[in-house]
Write a protein that binds this DNA or RNA. Sequence first.
DNA 1: TTGAAAATGTTGACTAAGCAACAAAAGAGG
DNA 2: CCTCTTTTGTTGCTTAGTCAACATTTTCAA
Lengths: 190, 190
Amino acid sequence: MLPNPNEKLDPRVKRTRNLILSAFEILLAEKGFESISVQDVTDKAQVNRATFYAHFPDKYALLDYAIGQLFRQEIEKRTLNACHYTPDNLRNLILAVVEFLSNMHSECAQPHQQFESLVEGTIKNILFQLLSHWLSQSKVKISTDIPATVATWAIYGLASHYSHLKKRPALEKFVDEALPLVAVNLEQFA
Amino acid sequence: MLPNPNEKLDPRVKRTRNLILSAFEILLAEKGFESISVQDVTDKAQVNRATFYAHFPDKYALLDYAIGQLFRQEIEKRTLNACHYTPDNLRNLILAVVEFLSNMHSECAQPHQQFESLVEGTIKNILFQLLSHWLSQSKVKISTDIPATVATWAIYGLASHYSHLKKRPALEKFVDEALPLVAVNLEQFA
DNA sequence: TTGAAAATGTTGACTAAGCAACAAAAGAGG
DNA sequence: CCTCTTTTGTTGCTTAGTCAACATTTTCAA
């Protein structure tokens, strides 16, 4: 199970984080990341500005958190968080990442480098965690670090590539073509 | 202006009252008033049970508050809260009350006496306040109490009558027939 | 009728959120 | 370049919300 520590949290904390998060998502779609001020977020969230700083060091940390939450949500929706390695699960995971990145690019209109690399770091962390978890479920007790790393980068790379294409091919077709190349490194854990 | 003291209130207070109110409205439509427990409300509102009691003595007080808020909302929607007496405003007011009561009866499915009389009391209070305000705007400086009282009871009576009818006539027709009977008492304030 | 389970209010100690005021750093023009 | 304004973080104090525990009722099935 992917650790999402939003469970045993003070209800007030959950509430204000959700308020901040929702406000931020709306603003992000409205005016892009750079032009959002902390004030904007707290106004829309109906939360005191000082409260914001009690939760996040700055707006970049919020972006980080938001990306993570959204992506985790995507993973949970497909029940990939509580399972193990199979080619089919891998296929779904790739689909999830590709769709996530594509949506992000169409909804946020963010040509900023800072934005991109922050997203990349966050997503790859979660991917690595998840893949490590999957592989550790296998009977074969081999070190999972290297295969998980390779798969993480490959998957993210595929998704990034796809989402930057001017003319995107059909999603399923793209994924089915790419899948075997990633799967070959993980076969031993099936 | 009808005093709705939800303005200069601590944001946390507004928030939790809204949470409680929304939860309550949903539950009311779902299972009717009597079978709702305070626990139910606080669970759905994601608020601590003790917090509920910090705002309302019991669920009857919540019902009272909810009715008031909903009705005030109806009034504000029609911008009747910041105006004066004219036959046309009176017409709109009657429409508002009739529609409000009718909706209440169809959505809440409450044959309970306790429920009905609580609604009646709350609505009549607000009606009286509003009408007193209207009449006090007039150049004629006559005591407003008696005419406001008569109009209040008449309007509520009409609405109650209409909403209990098995076969309801067309709303507009009904109101246009009733309007002159109420207006005659208020003519001097026009 | 009775007895276990559920709902009601209440309390006090703890934690989070609100607020106002501040210094400091960007930003935007002139 | 300089100033006026906006945004950023930070802080100490106040108020609201959470929690667990308790003593009552209420409810309702056995």
